[in-house]
């Protein structure tokens, strides 16, 4: 493994190895405290994403390494018109691995072609965000003990939600995964994903507008935010918004071992009253994000 640009850069075996390593880090944190001593991670964030950046930085610091970088393009020379390729060529001289967030789709791929150190895509516009998907896979694996034979409900904005698209791509490689796609008509999963991934691989899926109706069958419920700006009119938004808010009430028919996930940040799509429910695992998911990034950094550094 040289770079991580797209989750599909990793085969199932490599993903399993990362999950295994992350679990080992969780169990034996002391064994990893100094492993990246004298190594540096550069976080090049051409657009702000505090949560992802902190997760990467915390990951490197916990491995005993150091971090440098910038958190918005205005503070770096790209504001003066420098190309992505030139930027990463320069940063390759100062760091051992680079995590890059960029508003333009494909920028991390361009970076990987020019850099002499590994590039991690930390999100490129609405395109890819592979470390979020790795976070989700580690979470599912830890919560359920497996990544196969699961009924996975994806709820909310399935049209624009890149985390949902990547998660479907990644999970579609495991046996017996069934998807339940819960969204308003306006925000359904795009046809090309249904055709190229689900139908191509002969995977079972169900589309519905009602969360309540399918709740009892779900092993995983992956919530996403229904954003006001995605709707043509306020009336539709207000009508649909509440049907995709998860409340303790709606969870009464769910399985006792359901796992409720969310990539965060949450706005109002999961009521805070759900947080105390042991089935809510979105904060554990955020913690897992740090561990899987630690495993990824180690893999890319060959440690």
């Amino acid at each position: 493994m040289r770079n991580l640009i797209d989750i599909l850069d990793l085969d199932v075996r490599e993903i399993d190895a990362l999950i295994k390593r992350a679990n080992d880090i969780i169990e034996r944190p002391d064994a990893y405290r100094e492993i990246c001593r004298y190594k540096k991670l550069a976080t090049l964030f051409f657009e702000p994403s505090t949560r992802t950046r902190l997760s990467f930085e915390a990951a490197m610091l916990e491995l005993g390494g150091q971090v440098l970088g910038f958190s918005e393009a205005a503070s770096y020379s790209s504001a003066k018109g420098e190309s992505v390729s030139d930027t990463v060529r320069v940063v390759s001289c100062y760091a051992d691995v680079i995590a890059m967030r960029h508003p333009k789709e494909g920028a991390p791929l361009v970076a990987s072609m020019a850099a002499s150190v590994p590039i991690i895509n930390a999100g490129d516009g609405g395109h890819n965000h592979p470390t979020q998907t790795l976070t989700d896979l580690l979470t599912i694996s830890r919560e359920k003990g497996r990544l196969d034979h699961l009924t996975v409900g994806l709820c909310g904005d399935l049209k624009f939600g890149r985390t949902v698209h990547s998660l479907i791509s990644a999970l579609s490689r495991y046996e017996g995964v069934r998807f339940v796609l819960i969204s308003p008509e306006e925000l359904r999963l795009p046809d090309y994903i249904k055709q190229d991934i689900l139908e191509e691989k002969g995977l079972k899926y169900l589309e519905t507008e009602s969360l309540e109706q399918v709740m009892p069958e779900l092993d995983i419920l992956y919530m996403t935010r229904v954003q006001r700006e995605r709707f043509f009119n306020e009336e539709d938004y207000l009508r649909l918004r509440d049907s995709y808010i998860l409340t303790p009430d709606k969870l009464t028919t769910a399985k006792s071992d359901l796992s409720v996930m969310h990539p965060l940040p949450r706005v109002n799509e999961i009521s805070t009253a759900v947080d105390a429910d042991p089935r809510a695992c979105y904060f554990r998911q955020a913690l897992n994000g740090k561990y899987i990034r630690m495993a990824l950094i180690l893999a890319l550094l060959g440690l």
Partner: peptide, 23 residues
Amino acid sequence: KNPRCITTTEQELPHIFRLTGAK
């Protein structure tokens, strides 16, 4: 043609397309 593609801001990049799609 994607306005969000990196090729729109970095104009010296070659426009490379790959053939995909099974059907």
